[in-house]
Amino acid sequence: MSLATEAFMSQIAAAEPWPENATLYQPLREDQILLSDCASSLAVQAFLRMCGLPVQVVCRANAEYMSPSGKIPFIHVGNQVVSELGPIVQFTKAKGHSLSAGLDDVQRAEMKAYMELVNNMLLTAELYVQWCDDATATEISRPRYSSPYSWPLNNILAFQKQWEVRRKMNAIGWGGKTLEKVYEDVSQCFQALSQRLGTQTYFFAKQPTELDALVFGHLFTILTTRLTNNELAERIKSYSNLLSFCRRIEQTYFEGKHS
């Protein structure tokens, strides 16, 4: 989202209250959505629930192409379309709903840094496992990603996506990593999150913030998604405070939805 449109949107957004028919778009849940997209979508849903804003989840096969930035998820509120958690947080802030208003400067700096930690290490690791690990890519990612399309388009799109993700991994230096190394990096990330959480209810005292939503989205999805290799889920299970954190948020905000 550019600055100019951001400023303009803030002005418009502030004028209108949150409508009842706000919708969140993501790929098809049963057949198509992948781990990384599901985690991002769940993070946004958790954030909106924490803010007390109602949103309907709609699944579309072409959600990724509908999104203005090409990333999942995106929300359609009024006549505005906003994608990804960062801009959505800004957008809701312009409407007067914010979870991190009570933090001081140092805490806000830490919150933003930890959110980037999740994006930089955890999300990248999820993408790596999905697309750069041949077993997972062949058995799970490619079939799921290409399920709405017919032959030969499904193969073309799946390979195109895999190739693009591999190029990104090479560009940021993850191309040469082995799967073991990636799991180790992820463990480090979990350890850092576990350290920061400690014995608190949420990352910053008693109130949840967008960081809690983001961490919940990723951890919960990893725990409940079956991959060819459940190494990632096992690594989380060694940090009990993260497990109880997930359960707590699920019970508080998603009661009755997941069992």
Binding site: E110, K112, A113, Y114, E116, L117, N119, N120, M121, Q188, C189, Q191, A192, L193, Q195, R196, G198
Partner: peptide, 18 residues
């Protein structure tokens, strides 16, 4: 300390992303 190590990781990620 362990917490400072975690903060290091977080801020390094912040710089790499932003």
């Amino acid at each position: 300390s362990a917490k400072e190590g975690a903060d290091s990781l977080a801020f390094i990620s912040l710089m790499e992303e932003k």
